[in-house]
C-alpha cells in the first residue's frame, strides 16, 4: 500500500509540475491545484498508513491503536484553503485574460506595448525628482 500511495504522490506531482511549466494560465492553475492535492496526500502520509483505525475514540481515552490524527487535521484545513487560493488565482487570470485578450502568462516581446517588461525606469530615481543640488 505504501508503494501505491508513494506512486500516486509521484504521478500527481509529475502531472502538476508538467502543467505548471506551460505558458497558458488555465493549465498552470490546474497544475497548482493538482500540486496541492499531491502535497496534501504527502502530508497525510507522513502520519503513516493504517486501515480501519480512524482517529475516533470509543472510550474516554484511546484503547485501540489508531492512525495519527494530527496530519489529518492539518490537511483538512489545507484542502479548504487550497480551494480558496485556487479561486483567487482563477479570478485573477480571468481579469488578465479580459484585459489582454490573451491567456499567456509570460511577457511576449511581440505582443504589443501593454506587455512590455517593467524597466528600471519605473522604480529608479526620476532625474526630475532629484532637482538641483
Amino acid at each position: 500500500m505504501e508503494l501505491l500511495v508513494a506512486a500516486c504522490v509521484g504521478m500527481t506531482t509529475m502531472a502538476a509540475v508538467y502543467l505548471i511549466l506551460q505558458r497558458r494560465s488555465f493549465p498552470v492553475i490546474v497544475g497548482m491545484s493538482l500540486l496541492s492535492y499531491s502535497v496534501n496526500v504527502f502530508l497525510f502520509a507522513t502520519g503513516g498508513l493504517a486501515i480501519d483505525a480512524p482517529p475516533l475514540l470509543t472510550g474516554p481515552v484511546p484503547d485501540a491503536p489508531m492512525t495519527d490524527p494530527l496530519p489529518q487535521a492539518l490537511v483538512l484545513t489545507a484542502i479548504v484553503i487550497s480551494f480558496g487560493m485556487t479561486a483567487v488565482v482563477v479570478v485573477m487570470s480571468l481579469g488578465a485574460f479580459f484585459q489582454s485578450r490573451s491567456d499567456r502568462i509570460d511577457l511576449d516581446p511581440n505582443a504589443g506595448p501593454d506587455s512590455a517588461p517593467a524597466t528600471g525606469a519605473a522604480i529608479g530615481i526620476d532625474p526630475a525628482e532629484r532637482g538641483g543640488t
Binding site: E2, L3, V5, A6, A7, V9, G10, M11, T12, T13, M14, A15, A16, V17, Y18, L21, S38, F42, A45, T46, G47, G48, L49, D68, P69, L70
Partner: peptide
C-alpha cells in the same frame, strides 16, 4: 523535469511512511 520532481517526492514519501517519527509526536 516533472518526472524528477515526482520521483523525488514519491521516494521521500515512501521513506517517511516506512519509518516512525524520530521524536515522539504530540499526537
Amino acid at each position: 523535469f516533472a518526472g524528477a520532481a515526482g520521483l523525488g517526492l514519491a521516494t521521500l514519501c515512501y521513506a517517511i511512511m516506512r519509518r516512525d517519527p524520530a521524536f515522539a509526536t504530540i499526537s
